[in-house]
Amino acid sequence: MDNLVNTILLMLEGTKTTLNIFFITLILSIPIGLLVSLSRLSTIKPLSWLMELYIWIMRGTPLMLQLLFVYFALPMVGIRLSDISAALLAFVLNYAAYFAEIFRAGIQSINRGQYEAAKTLGMSYPQTMRRIILPQVIRRVLPPISNETINLVKDTSLIYILAMNDLLRVARTIVQREFDMTPFIVAAIFYLVMTFILTWIFKRLEAHYGKYEV
């Protein structure tokens, strides 16, 4: 029994690292993703192309490779980051690209008539985006954002490659030391609890932002 409590305490410590990466990545990559999507849709062609290139690279290579690159390759050009900063940089860059594409799809799904109505009422482009388009986009992108967010919870386990003690790495260490599979089950339960809470939050958000729908 003592053993189990000990295991759980150690794994809670690992969960802290997991949640740290999760929250900071989420908080930074959503606004960055929005900016990237707006730039990608910009009529300034070079800006749009640059964003396309960025999105292509981030979605086209494994997140694991990006983590290794930031941590091991950047020091060669004199950029040395702590393990947590390196992990965050890679995660934020990667997730912002995915969020950008989600936002782009959302923005493009809004009927042209909404822009025209706003324009004939004299609203500027920033006013139209802020007041008319984005509030409707939020409603539409919540389901795919929820998907990505749940993915992020699980993707955080990749940081073991930088020797960071996240939830899964802690579990594996204990398993290997004690020849007992319980930590894996505990880890699974931890992940399930986290994703359950997220699912619930997104359900509430969808209800809140969808209240104008029949």
Binding site: G113, Q114, A117, T120, Q136, Y212, E213
Partner: peptide, 13 residues
């Protein structure tokens, strides 16, 4: 000028 559209284009939110 005010404009009225075939598809109304009210702001649904």
């Amino acid at each position: 000028m005010g404009m009225v559209f075939q598809q109304f284009n009210l702001f649904p939110h």
